[in-house]
Write a protein that binds this DNA or RNA. Structure first.
Lengths: 176, 176
DNA sequence: ACCTGAACACCGTTCAAGT
DNA sequence: ACCTGAACACCGTTCAAGT
């Protein structure tokens, strides 16, 4: 699913991997929508668990953005794959509603996490600017993964993302 | 294809639209790889033609980045769709080689165009920094489209991309 | 509760046959 | 050169039948 998207895998493949018949898979996940939504939800849960509490006073906000970048980097470098919800995002308009909802929830949870971190890093910033900065970070990471994945060039990810890890809140507080 | 990716459309659909049988489509495009590669190439050609010459002395580099941003904005707003090659990029590892090659070529052509514009805007910049800036612009636009498309919120694209149109070469010349 | 084989309408692809 | 119907192995889904 992370490689071929919603239509890039089949019930019969999964059944063969698990050692049952495809009709049996439908007993656990009645439709492909159910199965893909569950996979997206599990992916998002693991992703958010790896990020941890954005308001943890033990962790400086200046360390949390590099940690965020690193989570995406590892997904791309170690798995040599896109972000699952990034793949689903591009297919949004052709996805069953339940799958689309889980992909959207992934981004909403990511943005909420980033907004918490950016707010801590730039205490005086306006809510509007905090939201904008969170959106830019999430968009840059998904875009950097996407382009690097297409070019087959992991360095492209590093290059695109370098600015983010270096200068955390480039304009979050001082934006006009 | 822009909605469901490589597996999101069928020869039989296309045949019905055109008024022939699906076997006849194979006469023009022997395989789905041929058809999708041709579509990606045509998309990239139209895209690059809309951008025009990045070195045209009649057009200031400061005007060309907003023009670039606007091309992606219109794709998202008017068509309510992702960039075709952005969709294909996320499916890269599951794509037939010929399709993958055309998607990659789209990004290479975009990066070359952006590098020309950035080089004109920051004449003293090092090649390494010019490439990095071009990569960031392309990644930010694809990522902003992807996130906005998943959220179903076009304003998210505008917000993420605002910084790009405002301050063209934020760090292209002064990057360390 | 969990699994299965068989059937349904779909899919890309091939091919012999038509004009 | 362009089209077609028929066949192939695939796909998601359903369902009656098994344990």
């Amino acid at each position: 699913m992370r490689e071929g998207g919603f239509h890039g895998f089949s019930f019969r493949e999964i059944a063969a991997d698990v050692g049952i018949k495809s009709a049996s898979v439908h007993h656990h996940f009645p439709t492909k929508e159910d199965l893909a939504a569950a996979a997206a939800r599990a992916y998002a849960d693991r992703h958010m668990a790896a990020l941890g509490d954005p308001d943890d006073p033990e962790r400086a906000p200046a360390d949390l953005i590099p940690l965020y970048v690193d989570l995406f980097r590892r997904a791309l470098v170690e798995d040599r794959r896109m972000c699952l919800c990034g793949v689903l995002a591009t297919e949004a308009s052709a996805l069953p509603p339940g799958v689309n909802a889980e992909a959207r929830a992934f981004f909403e949870r990511n943005l909420a996490w980033l907004e918490s971190v950016v707010a801590r890093a730039a205490p005086g910033a306006r809510p509007r600017d905090i939201e904008a900065q969170a959106l830019r970070i999430a968009a840059m990471l998904e875009g950097a993964m996407l382009v690097a994945h297409s070019l087959g060039d992991i360095d492209a990810f590093e290059t695109a993302v370098l600015e983010l890890s270096e200068t955390l809140s480039l304009g979050s507080a001082k934006m006009e």
